[in-house]
Amino acid sequence: MEDLKPMSNQQKLVEKQFGVAATDYLHSPAHAQGADLQRLRREFAEQPAMRVLDLGCGAGHASFTLSEVVGEVLAVDLSGEMLRVVADEAQQRGLSNLHTEKSMAESLPFADAYFDGVVTRFSAHHWADVPAALREMRRVLHPQGKCVIIDVCAPENPLLDTFLQAVEILRDPSHVRDYRVSEWQAMLAAAGWQVSDQDTWKLPLDFASWISRMRSPEERVTAIKSVWAGAPTEVCDHFALQPNHDFSLDVCWMTALPL
C-alpha cells in the first residue's frame, strides 16, 4: 500500500485558482488552439481501442481532441469547476467516451497498466510533486503505452529562468515551476521513462487576457510590469517583450516511453 498524503495547501490553491476562471480557459485561444493539439490527434490517430488519461485536463482541450480519435478518454483535474465545464462541453459535442474524475496526479485512482496513453497539457507546472506524478503515470500506463507531456518550460539560462518564474508566481499564486527541458529529462529518466521525441516552440501571449484569465489583483499586475521594466535586454529579447507587455513563452513537447 502506498503512503498517501492529503492535499497540500498548494493543491488547494490550484483548486481555488482555477475554480473562478474555468469557462475562460474553455474559450482562451492560447489553450483551445495550437498545432500541438493537431499533433496530439495525429499521435493517437486511428486507435479506436485506446484508453487515454488526460492529467490536469483544465478546460479539456486535449481531452476533446483525443476523444474524437481514441476509444476512451479519462479527464482528470483537481478543480471540480473545470471538470463540470469539461463534462458539459463533452455532452454538447456528443463525446460520450469522455469521462471526468477529480483526483491528483501524485496518487492516481486507477489500476496498474490500465491506460494505453497518458497525456498532460499545460498542467505540470502546477503539480506539487512531479517525480511522484511521473511514477504514478508510469504505473497506470501499459508497458507498450506512450506518454506525451506538453507544458510551458523554462530556458536553460538561469537569468531567463528566474524572470519567468517571477512573473508566473506573481500572476498565479498556485504556480510551482516551469521546468527546464533538462530537468524534465532527468525527472523522466529517474521515474523509469525514456524520451523518444522532444520539441520546443514559442507561444505568443496577449498580456491583458493572460492576466484576466487568472484574475490577478492589480498590485500583482503592477509588480509584473515592474519586473519586466527592470529586465535586461537579453531577457526582453528572449521573451519577445512588447511595449504593451505582450510576450512569448517557451513550450515543450516530450514523448516518453516506459523503460
Binding site: L4, L74, H99, P109, A111, Y114
Partner: peptide, 19 residues
Amino acid sequence: IDRRLLDLLACPQCKGSLQ
C-alpha cells in the same frame, strides 16, 4: 455513474477496486 467508469476507477490509496 457509468458502469464502465466504475470498472476503471481504483482507490487512490490501495489501488483496489471500488464499489
